[in-house]
Design a protein around this nucleic acid. Structure first.
Length: 200
DNA sequence: CGTCAGATGATC
DNA sequence: ATCATCTGACGC
């Protein structure tokens, strides 16, 4: 069952945690979400919306339940899910997934590399889904194109600080807004994750 | 195990 | 100039 738009109309941190275990679907490829991060503006200088609305981050300010895709370091597309109302700008970054279906397609999109298919790291997730900038703003609450389906709630959850946001204010750098499924191999940067949110 | 630099391009 | 990354190279 596709998650309804109302699922995303809540605080981004709550939605991020609840997205663990959900399944992203595009064509024959299905990936279980195993690691996410929450970003929110106002109140979080790690968020892309910190400098206001721009052409690049327009989807962030749009309706919840839509995708926000952007290019990072000129190389990697990163897949985010917009949450909350139109007044604020918040999104969940999908950092890691466990492949469920469509392994052949995923391998091909990864450049036909041999060996284990690891989807740990946000660039790899978007690549496995074949996403580019044209997918930004795509609604995810309709079972067509790109969508998110309800999945199993994970038994345990890991919490920790977000990755790669050294430019943010110190108070925001250590917010425990990264969540991951416990007891799975499909997590990036495991070292900084704890079962309980670390005090800042 | 760790750290580090290079690739690469839209954005401000 | 900056950047929500990945990979391969090299040192311990």
């Amino acid at each position: 069952m596709t998650l309804p738009q109302s699922f995303y109309d809540r605080d981004v941190v709550e939605v991020a945690r609840d997205l663990l275990g959900a399944v992203v679907q595009r064509g024959g490829v299905a990936l279980k979400i195993t690691e996410v991060e929450a970003y929110r503006w106002p109140g979080d200088t790690a968020c892309h919306a910190r400098a206001g609305r721009t052409a690049r981050n327009a989807a962030l300010w749009g309706p919840c339940g839509h995708a926000y895709v952007y290019l990072c370091y000129g190389l990697h597309h990163l897949f985010n899910i917009v949450t909350g109302g139109d007044a604020d700008a918040a999104a969940v970054l999908v950092r890691a997934c466990e492949p469920i279906r469509g392994m052949a397609t995923v391998s091909r999109r990864r450049g036909g590399k041999t060996g284990p298919v690891t989807l740990t790291g946000p660039g790899k997730v978007a690549a496995a889904l074949g996403l580019d900038l044209t997918w930004s703003d795509h609604p995810l609450y309709q079972p067509r194109g790109l969508s998110i389906e309800r999945g199993e709630v994970p038994a345990g959850v890991l919490v920790g600080p977000r990755v790669g946001i050294d430019y943010a204010e110190p108070a925001h750098r250590c917010l425990p807004w990264r969540f991951a499924v416990a007891d799975t191999a499909w997590v990036s940067q495991r070292r900084s994750l704890r079962r309980v949110a670390a005090p800042c």
